[in-house]
Simulated scan of single mutants.
Amino acid sequence: MQLQQIVETPVAGSSPIITDEEAGALARTTVNLFRAWQLSDAEACTLLGGMSARTWARWKEGIIGRTDRDLRMRMAHLMGIHKGLRYIFKDAARGYAWIRKSNAAFGGQSALDIMMRGEMADLASLRDWLNAERSAW
């Protein structure tokens, strides 16, 4: 038996770039999501990486300024969390309420408690956990 050479496959670039237009749409959707989750302004600012209260107030008025790469990624993770909840809970209201409920899988903390630690890694971990739950990995 003769060994065959494996053809190299080029690595795809890291995560796709979120355009300015997409970032604006993400920001508007994030405002709506946070309303559905009934977050306080302080909670919203923390989830958005320490956004200033003034900037958050402008966002709620529909005035979205520049968003950096980290903020865009935070919003993408939040949308992934929302998507996971919509797959798991057919009734949207149950999914919105779930983020505040104590969860044994999180040592009695809620998903919001996890997200409020403020690290992007916490958002990514919660998103991954929801994806695993809905996919039965």
Rank of each mutant, 00 (worst) to 15 (best):
L123V: 05
R69S: 12
A76D: 13
G62V: 14
G118E: 08
G107S: 07
N103M: 06
R72C: 10
A57W: 03
N103H: 15
G50Y: 03
E43T: 06
W56D: 02
W98E: 15
L47P: 11
G95V: 01
G80F: 03
L39F: 08
I63Y: 15
M120K: 11
S110Q: 04
A93I: 10
A42M: 04
G62D: 12
M73N: 10
L71D: 01
L47H: 02
A105N: 14
D41R: 14
Y96R: 08
G118W: 11
D128P: 14
L39T: 08
R94D: 09
R100W: 05
R127C: 10
Q109K: 14
A124F: 07
F106R: 10
F89T: 02
M75V: 05
S52N: 02
A93F: 06
Y96V: 03
A121C: 02
G65K: 13
L71A: 12
S102G: 07
I88L: 13
A42S: 11
M116G: 00
L48G: 06
G108T: 05
A121M: 13
F106V: 07
A44H: 09
M115W: 00
D41M: 11
M116N: 06
G84P: 02
G84T: 04
A105S: 12
D113C: 00
M73I: 10
N103R: 13
A111H: 00
A124C: 05
S110P: 01
G95C: 04
W56F: 03
K90P: 10
R69C: 01
K101Q: 14
S110T: 10
D91Q: 13
Q109E: 11
G49F: 05
A104V: 15
M115N: 00
W56P: 06
G49P: 11
D68L: 12
S110Y: 04
M51N: 06
G62E: 13
T67E: 07
T55V: 09
I99L: 08
E61G: 01
R86Q: 07
S125F: 14
L126A: 07
Q109V: 04
M51W: 05
D68M: 10
M116F: 02
K83W: 13
L123A: 11
G65E: 09
W37A: 00
E119Y: 15
L123F: 07
E119Q: 15
G108L: 09
A57T: 12
A97Y: 08
G107E: 03
G49V: 12
R127W: 05
N103Q: 12
A104K: 15
H82E: 14
D70W: 12
R74V: 08
A92F: 13
D113K: 02
L39E: 09
R94P: 00
G49E: 10
G107P: 05
F106E: 07
G62L: 13
A105G: 04
D122C: 13
L47S: 01
Y96C: 05
G118V: 13
H82C: 10
L39Y: 11
I114D: 00
M79K: 05
Q109L: 12
M115K: 00
L112W: 00
G80K: 01
L78A: 03
H82W: 09
Q38E: 07
W56K: 02
R74E: 06
I63C: 15
D122N: 14
R127Y: 02
R86C: 01
R69F: 03
D128G: 13
A44N: 09
D41A: 14
A42R: 15
K83G: 07
L71Q: 14
W98N: 14
Q38V: 12
A57Y: 05
R69P: 00
G65L: 11
H82F: 02
R74Y: 08
